[in-house]
Simulated assay, not measured.
Amino acid sequence: MTSGTAEEFTAHRPRMFGLAYRLLGSAEEAEDAVQDAFLRWNAADRTAVGHPGAWLAKVVTNLCLNRLTSARVRREAYVGPWLPEPVLTADGALGPLESAEQREAVSTALLVLLERLTPTERAVYVLREAFDYSHRDIAAVLDLGEANCRQLYRRAVQRVAAPEARFAPAADRRQELVESFVRAAREGDLAGLEKLLAADVVWWSDGGGKVTSARRPLVGRETVLRFLAGITQRLGGGAEHTTAEANGAPALLTHVAGQLVAVGSFELRDGAIAEVRVVTNPDKLAFAARQLTAPAPDA
């Protein structure tokens, strides 16, 4: 591959990673899909590639569709709740997140909802919602009829719809609540945590059978507080809780002995924390851990 061709692929790589991650919910698998796309790009007849960005989007989407089919089988046998891999987004790892809609498109809550869709529905939804593809362009990517793509999109929107609006409250209010939660967790202040949680709060833990975690969602403030009290007692003063932006929103990061052991995302409703989703599976934390130790882009 010539250096110019390699540079051209590199220019498209962040967008392709963002597409693959939204389709797969896995940063590690998204990296693999992008690497496979690179190999195909390297072997392609360049004269047959009229628009590199469109060509790569088609290749990456179809690579992800193949992975989604096998991923569904694996997730059916997954130990405990399945959650997407967290990605730190303050450095633009998933592209610009300048609006509420852009942040929503990479939120943990939406990625969980996308699991309701078939692989093709998910591809249509992501290309339309996150990348603003026309139905005609989506049809070209998926080799489907335009009318079929419209129908798939309508079905996907209906299946992803939640009973209540999912859009986040004001950014400063979200930041305030998450920082208050992290501060209370750091101090072992269960009374402070109680004030932040909705009465019907739901706590999801994804340990994947690799570490000790709740294998069913915990429902209700008292249940969640008992669970948190147990964690606090088990970790003692050995845990360090901080905040960072993950999947477009403020998140909880927990380190023990310098190692990232948990990333938690929050869903808010009526000024309180309504859902908490915490990834503790070490395999799913590997990408975020590498992000934390990577040198700054201008270093």
Rank of each mutant, 00 (worst) to 15 (best):
G192R: 09
R226G: 14
G230E: 11
L197I: 02
F227P: 05
L225C: 12
H241Q: 07
L193V: 04
V224C: 13
T242Y: 07
A249L: 08
V201G: 02
A214D: 07
A249F: 11
L190F: 11
A199E: 15
V224A: 11
A244V: 07
D206N: 11
R234C: 00
G230K: 12
G230W: 12
G208I: 02
T223A: 14
Q233G: 01
G192V: 03
D189T: 03
L196V: 01
G237W: 01
V211I: 13
P217Y: 11
H241I: 12
L196Y: 10
T223S: 14
H241G: 00
V211Y: 11
L228V: 15
A246T: 05
L193S: 05
L235K: 07
K195H: 05
G209Y: 00
G209R: 07
W203E: 02
K195E: 13
E245R: 03
G207P: 05
P250Q: 06
R234E: 07
R221P: 00
G207S: 01
Q233I: 02
D200H: 10
G207A: 00
K210E: 09
K210L: 08
A246N: 04
A214V: 06
A214H: 10
T212V: 15
L225I: 11
G238S: 12
A251H: 07
T243A: 03
E194R: 13
R234S: 07
G209E: 01
A249C: 03
R234W: 11
A229N: 11
R221A: 10
A199M: 04
A191R: 06
E240P: 01
A246R: 01
